[in-house]
């Protein structure tokens, strides 16, 4: 039965003299490897040289603050629900008086953890987020010696105001148009409000 039109029928025919001599085939193979001697090397010498990443590359997450420095996340849990790998857990808390500068809304995430060993970097959390709080960035998740170190808490995820993380690079027109889709009404309203 033919499954694809690319399949090749195996024919066990007698080898011709040149095939039985081995040498022509060996020479052919050696010329192929020799031609690779002069080809461009595929290696990227990493610490000195960075691999060029796609504009929409999805790497380590960031929890954004707004321009005043307050955390945007309200611990609604939509990201955790959207996550296919169940990598996100969080615990919410109520904002106290005097903490308005720290948290934008009345509810905030007391604990917010992403297990980087589980995360598949699909970016569904970013799409699900109604508050523009979580983004995937072009940073590569560093390796570690223990599994515990790979569970990133708020200390790693939340950006600091001194070194803000640029997430605009990933927001290409295609990504924005995807986010403007009717299914993602929250984005629409936010962008409308922004404009």
């Amino acid at each position: 039965m033919q499954l694809t039109n690319r399949s090749i029928q195996v024919v066990k025919k007698e080898l011709t003299l040149s095939e039985r001599l081995y040498f022509p085939a060996i020479l052919k193979g050696m010329l192929i490897t020799l031609s690779h001697l002069f080809k461009r090397k595929a290696t990227i010498k990493y610490p000195e040289q960075d691999r060029e990443l796609a504009a929409v590359y999805r790497g380590q997450h960031v929890l954004k603050r707004d321009d005043a420095g307050a955390e945007r996340c309200t611990a609604c849990g939509l990201c955790a629900v959207a996550c296919p790998a169940e990598a996100i857990t969080m615990e919410s808390a109520e904002r106290k008086k005097g903490e308005e500068g720290l948290y934008r809304e009345e509810k905030y995430a007391k604990i917010y953890e992403i297990n980087m060993l589980r995360c598949i970097f699909c970016g569904l959390c970013e799409d699900a987020c109604p508050k523009e709080a979580i983004f995937l960035t072009d940073r590569i998740v560093p390796s570690s010696f223990t599994r515990g170190e790979e569970v990133f808490g708020k200390d790693i995820l939340v950006e600091s105001m001194t070194e803000r993380v640029d997430v605009s690079k990933r927001q290409t027109p295609e990504v924005l148009s995807f986010k403007n889709d009717k299914k993602h009404k929250h984005n629409q309203t936010y962008l409308d409000r922004k404009n």
């Binding site: 490897t33 001697l37 080809k39 090397k41």
Partner: peptide
């Protein structure tokens, strides 16, 4: 390395 389009020990 060269025959496999790599750099080799460097």
């Amino acid at each position: 390395a060269w025959l496999q389009d790599r750099v080799g020990p460097n």
